[in-house]
Each structure stands twice: as C-alpha cells, then as structure tokens.
C-alpha cells in the first residue's frame, strides 16, 4: 500500500539534545499510531517535524511521495492536519468562527467561507458536542472545552492524515472516550492518524502501531501488539509497572 507520510533518515536535534537519529518511518492509510515517551523527550518536536513545522538536521519527510519542503503550505494543509498543544494563540471571535478557520486551506473564494464550509464546521462542532457553545466567545471556554474546539477545528479541515499532539489533554472521561471514538471512525474511513498519548489503555484500544521515544534519541517503532508490553513500557518510562488484566484488557499501573 502507498505511504501517506514517510520519514527517511530523519535526524532531529535541539541543541545538544538528540530527538531522533536517522529515523525511517512509514505511515500508511488506515493506520493509527500512538507516540509514547517520557515528558520532554521531544514527542512534540518530532510531530512538528513530520508536519513540516520544524526543520530537521538531516533527512527528509515526504507526503504522498513528495518532499514536504517542495509543497506549498496550503496544499499540504488540505491533506495533513495538525493539532498543536497549547497554541498560546488568542482568538477574539466565537467558537464557531474558530472552528471555521479549519476550512481555511479549502476556501475557494477570497471573500469568505462557502455554505459547505459552514456545514462542515457545524458537523465538526456536533462531533465534539459543542453546538451549545457555538456562539460563545472562544476565550470564555474552559481548558477542556478549548481543547474540544481545537479538535473540532482540525476535524473541519477534513484531511487524510491527522497529527495530534496530546489530543486527550484536559478532557474528562466522557469526552476522552467520545473523542477516541471519533478518531476510530476516521481510521475506518481510511485516514491515517498519529497521536501523542500518555494513556497506554487508549494506545491499546485505538492504535495499531506504536512509536516509543527514549531520552537518548533512540526510537523504537512497530506494531502495538509487540511493543505494548510491560518490558518495553518499563524501559520507556523507567519505572516499575504492574500489569492488571481487566475484562480482557491489560492495564499498566505505575508501582508506588
């Protein structure tokens, strides 16, 4: 099957800190990747590099066989969606206007969004259960609601590949489950997803592939089945874990 996103001999470092060294990676349609690692190992930087928002030291990233740097941002944004962690952006408009920005790369007219764009934004709002808040100013939302609005914006973008940096942060249990359900549906439709997660349970439930980032820049990737084991996770998080089996699912709990 053809690759959506491909990294070849990708080396990323920030100062003396190695984030990945000569990484080869292929993300194909219908795959869901979980990115795991301790705080500060550079999960966000790796994701940003794959999205073309950060320049690697060497190696390259390509989308659909074409190197990212050879494509316009607009063209890329029609196929590749990125959910960023605390953007720090101030937005003065309503939640609906915020979500509508996700349609920007698809906008046909210079003068505004089409009826179809608005319908897709509305649909994304509904998927994240935000219809009731649509007319509220974005900056009056709580942290979790803002996170849902950001996810809705990325959903409105209607892309083939989603790079999601901690999509579950600030979300309550109900919305965690609901969001992951939305992502699973995207996967069934043939989209590729790559998400930074801290919850191994969600990684097991939704991801078929896992990428583990270690502090020394070493990266391990493969199928979820072979990597989501106690041995690998203990090495990754450098702490002892207890493995519980509940209704057929494996839970990994850090020992105190």
């Amino acid at each position: 099957m053809q690759a959506f996103l491909e990294a070849r001999k990708l080396t990323v470092a920030i100062g003396a800190k190695m984030i990945c060294h000569e990484l080869d990676l292929v993300v194909r349609p219908g795959e869901c990747w979980g990115v795991l690692g301790q705080n500060g190992v550079g999960k966000t930087t790796l994701l940003r590099t794959l999205a073309g928002l950060h320049m690697p030291q060497s190696g390259m990233v390509s989308w659909n066989g074409v190197v990212l740097t050879a494509q316009t941002r607009r063209n890329l944004a029609r196929h590749l969606g990125v959910l960023l962690q605390n953007e720090g952006g101030e937005f003065w408009g309503s939640v609906q206007e915020y979500v509508l920005l996700g349609r920007f790369p698809h906008r046909a007219s210079l003068f505004g969004y089409s009826v179809q764009d608005e319908a897709l934004a509305q649909q994304a709002l509904a998927q994240m259960e935000l219809e009731g808040l649509a007319q509220q100013p974005y900056n009056t939302l709580s942290g979790g609601e803002q996170q849902r609005a950001a996810i809705a914006q990325t959903l409105a973008q209607q892309v083939q590949c989603y790079l999601l940096d901690e999509p579950l942060q600030h979300l309550d249990l109900r919305h965690q489950a609901q969001t992951m359900q939305v992502f699973s549906r995207l996967k069934e439709q043939g989209c590729a997803l790559m998400m930074v997660l801290h919850d191994t349970l969600w990684a097991q439930r939704c991801c078929d592939h896992v990428l583990m980032q270690f502090a020394d820049g070493h990266v391990l990737h493969g199928t979820a089945q072979e990597l989501l084991t106690r041995t690998h996770l203990e090495a990754l998080y450098q702490c002892s874990l207890r493995e519980l089996s509940v209704e057929g699912e494996r839970w990994f709990v850090a020992g105190v």
Partner: peptide, 13 residues
C-alpha cells in the same frame, strides 16, 4: 491572529 504554528498548519505561508 490565532497562533503562528496553527496558521502554518492551516496553510498560511
């Protein structure tokens, strides 16, 4: 106005 990285991700040069 919504953030530089976000803008780049949404296709703004």
């Amino acid at each position: 106005a919504g953030g530089l990285d976000k803008a780049a991700a949404l296709g703004v040069a």
